[in-house]
Design a protein around this nucleic acid. Structure first.
Lengths: 194, 194, 194, 194
DNA sequence: AATGAATGAGATTTCATTCAT
DNA sequence: GATGAATGAAATCTCATTCAT
């Protein structure tokens, strides 16, 4: 694969992402994507098998991007408060501003939404293991702060994701702090001294 | 409007709801709905202006149903723990079991999702005030338990909704308890003696 | 046929005529006609075989009305100038003001227009003889004023009709006079003293 | 726009014109047009926005064709008798033989007819100025032959058009001459020596 | 590699007509 | 006589995908 063709691929995904951020899957036409890239419709099909293939690849790329960023934050190995704060900041600063994520928010939460069954299935299959890996890492991370605790860590992870989605969807400037004090209130009690 | 026609209307909405619970808006054909009701396609159009009209009415009816149920729980005027427990139970027992809600969950959270712009706009317009009313009632309710507190009640409402969606989407049997202990841990500190 | 049913029939035709005056044949729905009459759709079918039957009967009635009026004018047996003047006045005063005629003007001229073939054929069949009768009467009338003349009286009749249509469709206040002086200029030369 | 696509466009318009000449607007199906052109239905929609768009373009093209031809005749700058004779010949030889014009004849006369409101409005908007331009040219032309005359030239134009329509709709072989002698009888009186 | 004209299955929607009540 | 719910054939229009150039 030449440099040129790699660049073309990326360009198509980038323009497609912008369009999917604004409209329903069915409202984005392959011809719209092609037009934005100033190529012919047929060209899109040289790089992607189908419209749903294009959508799924864009989707995975986007999720992977978030997963990577979260992982980086976890990797810093700060204390719980700082780590949560960093993640919340990340969601407020990056995810909330991204129309694509605002539209597809909740993706972490087990993808469903109003997608063609074919697309939904492809996505579920594709991102399941990636999400699961992140889940395990986060659970491990949380495990560092708790011991012999009655709280279910996997539930906690899931609720955390829900709260992240809320942060990304809300326009409130204080929601981040509210979420933090909500979570840390309870968690503090069980926190180990690291 | 005759009894007969009211029944037909309800029947169509009921069958449509079942189908929308299983598939993308675009995958549900008006002819599918008609077939399920054992009537001709045209009959659906006697009762609804268009497919999107049908969808929106089903959607509003469903949301209204949840809103009513939540309102009933708030009306019991129990203490905070009991009220939250009741709401969580309701979500676990009713919403989680309902494929329609699992698919369209997050509706409370400010509707977005992957819907045709026309449908999304109709829905936003239709449910905005209803949701807002409920929000105010919940905020009032929460206000009874707190005073001079730094927590933003509207944020809290929003996070609560996020958590409810998480409960509805999760299959965990313990998530309800985890959520309760998460919230009450912090809130307890600020609770007034009622 | 009872009085009651005759009145109903007339009412339906009257309302249908009003609607056909405003809209395309295909834009007028049977249900519109029924609604205007405050009866059910089925009732229209008690009085007319079909929508096209209704249209054709209204059409024939309207044409017959004009034919009768023209005949009355011819019957007065005035001189040519006065007769033409009377007919022109009639077109200006009555036909021009009637939206139905303005829309379907030119009907005398051999009906064509943009009508469903079925409707067009029914109309041609129904009005042919009536129009022909009038044509003969007018030709006879004109014949009284000319003898041994090179002008073809049937052509003259046809041109006269075209001019009537023009009067009915124009909004000009002088067109009647212009038409009269145009026609009489030539005709005067050949006029017999009656 | 390639040669190929220009040819396709013309082909579709040509076949559509033939069909509209034979049937009601509503009786001509887009699929009929496509079949005649031996292309798929979708292809028609590559070249025209809608069925009504196709109709209107065909209509305008046809009117423009007549307007051009009339203009050429006026441009020869012959005397009035010769010019009228040329125009009448043109209507007898060309327009009368054309089923499309026989059906839609009277278009010059202020478009009305039995058309879907949408189509009628589009047409009125589109051809109004073109017709008006021609009207002015004809009025100017007629003005050359008259001075200080009581006849309204715009009325005369309008009656002339009505007569042309009559020529186009009649099957008489003598109507042209009858019309000519009718008109020239009066006009001769007022003609200037040019 | 790139094009874009052509395809054609299939969706929503309309409405004259019927018929059980 | 009157009703109006139900029908269902049929029309317009869309767009992902293909393929000859």
């Amino acid at each position: 694969m030449t440099d040129q063709s790699v660049r073309r691929r990326e360009q198509i995904m980038k323009e497609a992402r912008k369009l999917f951020a604004k409209k329903d899957y069915h409202e984005v036409k392959v011809s719209d994507v092609a037009k934005k890239c100033r190529v012919a419709k047929g060209t899109v099909y040289l790089y992607f098998d189908s419209k749903s293939d294009l959508f799924v690849r864009v989707f995975i790329q986007s999720i992977d991007h978030i997963i990577q960023d979260i992982r980086k934050i976890l990797f810093l190995d700060n204390d719980l408060r700082t780590t949560l704060m960093n993640i919340f900041d990340y969601y407020e600063d990056s995810v909330r501003k991204d129309d694509y994520f605002r539209r597809f928010g909740g993706m972490h939460q087990g993808f469903s939404g109003n997608f063609p069954t074919k697309v939904a299935n492809k996505i579920k299959k594709s991102i399941f293991s990636r999400i699961e890996d992140l889940e395990n890492e986060v659970v491990d991370f949380l495990g560092n702060y708790f011991s012999g605790i009655e709280i279910n860590l996997r539930d906690l992870y899931f609720l955390l994701v829900a709260i992240l989605v809320a942060i990304a969807k809300s326009d409130s400037e204080t929601i981040k702090d509210t979420a933090l004090s909500l979570i840390l209130g309870e968690l503090n009690k069980h926190m180990l001294n690291k």
